[in-house]
Design a protein around this nucleic acid. Structure first.
Lengths: 227, 227
DNA sequence: TGCGTTTCTTAACCTAGGTTAATGCACGGA
DNA sequence: TCCGTGCATTAACCTAGGTTAAGAAACGCA
């Protein structure tokens, strides 16, 4: 595969869907709605008291990311955790030969951070890039670490987030061990309906571990099979 | 690939290494040494007091597994966590077509359990099988869960174990995304020197996600390259 | 010691996916 | 409106790895 630098490239061409996000982000919903969404996400893990909520709330700030901009760049220290209230990002890294490898796509309602690099206390090799207009509640990893030192709730919430990450990676391992690229693609479409219209074939193929050309062939085979 | 049932099959042929383990397990070291090893493993994660040690110690029991026997069978509920004080196991699952897929090899000094299935509160599809004479300190998952409800230390230890599991799975994802089978094999030998002499080619190939025939070809290429 | 079992190797052939290159298409900007 | 720039598709060719089948080497047990 050729060495490709896509960092500065314009975003993939859009298809049918999509202007929606511009419309809603133009309305700028009140901060309260974002905080409420964040608190609901926490409560779905473990009930928290108002006092505990007040421990984390002052550390949160809302940030906006335009399409193509970065929530985390490789080589920067891993400073922040992002909770997406709207939008879509990809987490990926680049190898020495210049190839990009997409680890995952993250949607609104989930967390994104270079957690692996943080655990290993290493320079992150991970890039996190907005694929849509994205808004996120951001808090410093350090603030969260301080909280979990003192209150079991935050350790528990941390553990639950990790459990979800671990299960996702196990699922991915399962797919790489036992399935072909076309089966992995079919499962991706099941897990994330509509992703074909939001994400370029280049990024999708990278996530699946194949070239865009191979994915194009897979898509054709699927079209032919459905006729 | 043909459907193969290896559950009842004798263990792979041994090579040069190996009688060592029989010798030491025949000596049956005192329980104290095993407990000390376990406590050291915990302390390497987080310092614990004697009082905390006494919370977990009564739940521990030593179990011995002969080569080929199972620490966990699929379809059994996930009941126990095993800390290996000696030996070697493989964690794997089988797919509908009868193929086996090895998730990982676990050595003495580490934990093994069907954690993913436990998180999802599902029937485990994972088998954990001893590849050597293996001794393990066993404790019920439920006992650990009860401890972490009440004491931050156990939540923290749980989180650290999960972090290690997560990092391992991320590493594996990285390898599947960016490396060929022969590169993955070379890395496995680096991470676990001597594993070629302990584990059958069938299991190694399964871990790498290729057939034993492909691994045989990879080995030949490596031999030729070293001449 | 010899037999049966299993693993490992090798060969021949096939398929999925990688590589290179050309074409067509959509979009955006001048 | 036209043109430039990427993206998606397709074709031709190549390689890694899968499949089937056979033989060789190592081991366990009688």
């Amino acid at each position: 595969m050729k060495v490709v630098d896509r960092f500065a490239s314009p975003m993939p061409q859009r298809r049918a869907v999509g202007l929606l996000h511009y419309a809603t982000s133009a309305m700028l919903p009140a901060m309260d709605a974002n905080l409420a969404m964040f608190r609901r996400a926490l409560e779905s893990i473990s009930a928290i008291t108002d006092r505990e909520w007040e421990q984390i709330r002052p550390h949160l700030s809302l940030r906006h990311f335009t399409r193509g901009s970065y929530l985390q760049s490789a080589k920067e220290p891993v400073g922040d955790v992002h909770f997406l209230v709207e939008g879509l990002v990809r987490e990926y890294y680049t190898t020495a030969d210049g190839r990009e490898h997409v680890k995952s796509f993250v949607r609104a309602g989930s967390f994104t951070a270079a957690y692996g690099a943080y655990i290993l206390a290493r320079e992150s090799h991970v890039w996190i890039q907005a694929l849509e207009e994205t808004r996120a509640l951001v808090f410093p990893f350090a603030a969260f670490v301080a909280l979990r030192e003192t209150n079991l709730i935050w350790e528990r919430i941390n553990r639950h987030i990790l459990e979800a990450l671990f299960v996702a990676k196990e699922k991915r391992e399962f797919q790489f061990l036992s399935m072909s690229a076309s089966e992995r693609y079919r499962l991706l479409l099941e897990d994330f309906p509509g992703i074909e219209d939001l994400v370029s074939q280049y990024h999708l193929a990278s996530y699946l571990g194949v070239t865009p050309i191979a994915l194009s062939r897979i898509r054709r085979r699927m079209r032919v099979a459905n006729e």
